[in-house]
Computed example of a mutant assay.
Amino acid sequence: MEVRSERIHLELAVGETGSHGYATHAVDPLVNIKDRSAEQPHRITLVFSLESATRFIVVCETIHRWDAVRRFIQVLTDEGLRKKKEK
């Protein structure tokens, strides 16, 4: 969602719906998660520089000490390479 031209909010989730059939817990019974995503989405905000179109800051939510910035950069890189191949 674009808030302003220099600020964009998005969510990044790794995994695909249905890739795990059940969640397990040491005490609780199995939980069917067939229709849910395998990973919780991380909220990310991109704050772009007003002086330079090529510079931005990534503000990322960390969940259980897992930071999604590395994965986010990889997704951007993969998408850029895919678009280059299409051309």
Rank of each mutant, 00 (worst) to 15 (best):
A23C: 07
H64P: 00
R7P: 01
L76N: 02
H64K: 08
R71Q: 14
E39K: 02
S52V: 05
A23H: 05
I57L: 13
P29Y: 04
W66R: 08
D67V: 02
T62I: 10
G18F: 03
R70C: 13
E61C: 00
S19H: 08
L46S: 02
R70H: 11
E6L: 09
G18V: 02
H42W: 02
V31A: 09
L30P: 02
T24C: 11
M1G: 10
N32R: 12
T45G: 02
K34Y: 07
V27H: 08
D67G: 03
H25M: 05
E39R: 03
E16L: 07
M1Q: 09
H25K: 04
T54D: 11
M1H: 09
I73Q: 04
L10A: 07
P29N: 10
R65D: 11
K34I: 10
E6P: 01
E16I: 13
F72V: 01
A26Q: 11
H64T: 04
T54Q: 07
T17Q: 13
V47H: 10
L12T: 00
T24Y: 14
A38F: 05
E86P: 15
S49F: 08
K83S: 07
A68W: 02
E11V: 04
E51R: 10
I33N: 00
D35L: 12
T17D: 07
Q40V: 11
S37H: 10
C60V: 08
V47E: 09
F72R: 01
G18W: 01
D67C: 12
Y22D: 04
E2Q: 08
L30Q: 13
R70S: 15
K84L: 15
E6C: 10
V69L: 12
I57P: 00
R4L: 15
D78P: 00
D35C: 03
V27A: 06
K34L: 11
A38H: 07
E51Q: 13
V14G: 02
V47R: 09
I63D: 02
R82M: 13
D35G: 05
E79H: 15
V31T: 11
F56Q: 04
I33S: 02
G15K: 00
R4N: 13
V27G: 05
V3L: 15
T62F: 00
D67W: 03
R4E: 15
D67H: 07
S37N: 12
E39F: 02
E86G: 03
E86N: 06
T24M: 15
F48M: 06
R4M: 14
A23D: 11
G18K: 03
K83F: 15
G21W: 03
V31L: 15
K83I: 15
E16R: 05
C60H: 03
N32E: 03
S52Q: 11
H64V: 09
P29T: 06
D67L: 09
G18L: 03
H20M: 10
V47T: 05
R36W: 06
R7V: 15
R70Y: 09
H9E: 08
M1P: 00
Q74W: 08
V31S: 12
G80Q: 04
F48P: 00
T45A: 08
D28Y: 13
L46H: 01
T54H: 06
H42I: 00
E39T: 13
R65H: 10
F72W: 06
H9N: 08
E6W: 11
V75S: 05
R7D: 06
R4I: 14
K87I: 14
R71C: 13
